[in-house]
């Protein structure tokens, strides 16, 4: 019962955040860049539910508009990692022993390096920005998917129905797309769901460090970064964008674990 309640609550939160990302205008009448110097650094009130920042911009509005870029980074990095990881996993499982050795050693090396540092190395090379952050996170998350897809494929290709498909003379490509991939799909989706949260945190951290979207973008990590000098006088600037990140990640994790329990 308790588990169900948590799942329902998490789904509602995710629905609201998705709404904020797709149609922010429905949740707030203001725009994220509307500055009002006279209203700078005001605490939460009836006019400004979550207070205002140093430029007098409404924090609630900025958090609502920040949903899209914040989610985009997490989803984008995960999508890219799933595609690259699946390709590598299939290559390792079906490409013969030598290919398998090379791919899996590569995977092991990337997994052994600290994730954030690897991202920082990539960003030193590429420079800051949303796309580069997505690329950097995908680079070090892809190996987990490669491992999973390889393991799944190894099991599935020995299964009776694949043997049957082979003996029926189906082409290799058709067997992979019609028989192997759909069966590796379920655990992949579960892992990806949970990992969206991790990718989101990584993207927000990089943004906070000034390496993601640049000001005045209302991305949550970037908002915290821009508010750094005002934490001592305006606690709401330090609190609310972080609450948005944490609630999102928490909800994603709860939903992900729920899916995980259902398939196992």
């Amino acid at each position: 019962m308790r588990v169900r309640a948590g799942f329902t609550l998490a789904s509602v939160v995710l629905a609201l955040i998705t709404l904020a990302a797709l149609a922010p205008g429905l949740l707030t009448g203001s725009t994220p860049d509307a500055a009002d110097a006279l209203a700078a650094l005001q605490g939460p009130s009836a006019d400004h539910w979550l207070g205002t920042d140093a430029n007098g911009r409404d924090l609630f509005t900025r958090i609502v508009y920040g949903a899209a870029p914040s989610l985009l980074a997490g989803l984008g990095a995960t999508a890219l990692a799933v595609v690259v990881g699946t390709a590598l996993g299939l290559l390792a499982a079906l490409g013969g022993r030598a290919v398998d050795e090379i791919v899996m050693r590569l995977v092991e090396i990337v997994l052994s390096l600290p994730t954030l540092l690897l991202a920082l190395l990539v960003i030193t090379v590429t420079g800051p920005g949303t796309v580069n952050v997505i690329f950097a996170i995908a680079l070090y998350t892809a190996p987990s998917y490669a491992r999973l897809v390889r393991a799944q494929t190894m099991v599935i290709r020995k299964a009776g129905f694949v043997e049957a498909a082979t003996s029926l003379g189906l082409s290799r490509g058709r067997i992979i797309t019609r028989h192997v991939l759909p069966n590796a799909f379920e655990p992949l989706v579960v892992l990806a769901t949970i990992e969206v949260g991790t990718a989101l945190v990584a993207a927000a951290s990089l943004s906070y460090l000034g390496l993601g979207p640049q000001p005045p973008a209302p991305e949550w990590g970037a908002m915290l970064s821009a508010g750094r000098d005002y934490f001592s006088v305006a606690w709401w600037i330090a609190i609310f964008p972080g609450v948005a990140i944490t609630l999102t990640v928490l909800s994603i994790t709860v939903v992900g674990r729920h899916l995980q329990r259902r398939i196992s």
């Binding site: 915290l224 330090a238 609190i239 944490t246 928490l250």
Partner: peptide, 19 residues
């Protein structure tokens, strides 16, 4: 524990610093 793994470390630090 669920909350502990979901809070981004950099925000925990900001939170502790602010409070």
């Amino acid at each position: 524990e669920l909350i502990g793994v979901s809070i981004p470390t950099f925000w925990t630090a900001i939170l502790l610093l602010t409070v």
